[in-house]
């Protein structure tokens, strides 16, 4: 259980998050929506203890987040925003997937057979197992992002926090990605918190939705929220929502099949 209580974060005297309170239960798949600058990334960083609030608290399983991270950091899988990862490192995909498993004298290290099998398995889940020995800087942005998702899974995390996982990922794989995440949440009772700009997909796949714009405007079951009103409140009154369904009859790529 993740419990955020009266969380307020301030940067240079500007309030970025204002009195946020929420609870996320074990195994829930939560989507966080909001416009640019709404504080979505700051919220997930606060949940990870990366940002320190001026007021309020974050507890995971009843323990303050900093203490939880010290004791159980490996139980959290985290996908940071695509742009803040150093993709120019001279490492292979297998090294990138294993990079969080720090060990003394790591420069002389060889991976065990079970570690290699685990890397191969998670790369195959995200459809990039054929890239295992390629260098990360030579991959496309979407492939790099899938490698990062495989890295997140290497600890079999109880909590998975994804900051815009669909950045650079193509539309077709996006749908598959949400399906994989939904499956992980359901089968492994994994708590997933996902920041996304993909409103249509988020409303379709997640269990709970949070609409954020400095304040928490809504938090509820995916089907229980009147979205047109809330999203207009969060994004502004010019917001227009068009929901695309899979197999859309008017979509170009489906016309050939008909």
């Amino acid at each position: 259980m993740i419990e955020v209580k009266n969380l307020t974060v301030v940067f240079d005297e500007k309030i970025v998050l204002d009195d946020i309170s929420m609870k996320i239960g074990k195994g829930e798949f939560v989507g966080i929506l909001g416009p640019n600058g709404a504080g979505k990334t700051t919220l997930v960083k606060s949940i990870l203890g990366l940002e320190k609030p001026v007021k309020g608290s974050v507890k995971i399983d009843g323990v303050d987040v900093d203490e939880y991270i010290k004791a159980n950091g490996a139980r959290i899988g985290y996908l940071p925003q695509y742009a803040i990862v150093n993709w120019n490192m001279p490492i292979r995909v297998v090294d990138a997937v294993m990079i969080e498993k720090v060990k003394p004298f790591g420069i002389f290290r060889k991976y065990s057979k079970s570690e290699m099998e685990s890397v191969r398995y998670w790369l195959s889940v995200f459809g990039v197992e054929d890239k295992m020995y390629d260098y990360i800087k030579e991959l496309s942005g979407g492939q790099q992002q899938r490698v990062s998702l495989a890295r997140c899974m290497m600890h079999n995390p109880e909590i998975l926090i994804l900051d815009e996982p669909n950045t650079a990922i193509d539309a077709v794989y996006n749908t598959r990605l949400y399906g994989i995440l939904k499956e992980l949440s359901r089968k492994n009772s994994m708590t997933i918190i996902m920041v996304s700009h993909d409103i249509g997909a988020v409303t379709k796949y997640v269990d709970e939705i949070m609409c954020l714009n400095v304040k928490l405007h809504c938090h509820g079951k995916s089907g229980s929220i009147n979205f047109s009103d809330v999203l207009k409140e969060v994004y502004g009154k010019d917001m227009e929502i068009v929901i695309h369904e899979d197999g859309c009859k008017n979509c170009a790529f489906n016309k050939d099949k008909q």
Binding site: K45, L48, G49, L50, I69, K70, G73, A74, I76, Y78, P80, I84, V85, N86, M89, I91, A96, I99, E100, K101, V102, K103, P104, F105, G106, I107, F108, R109
Partner: peptide, 23 residues
Amino acid sequence: MTYLFSHFQLISYNEELAYIAGI
């Protein structure tokens, strides 16, 4: 440097991940 090589490797890759890893 050799003892902490993989620690520095992770910090260079992404500092936030290094923090979560307890570094």
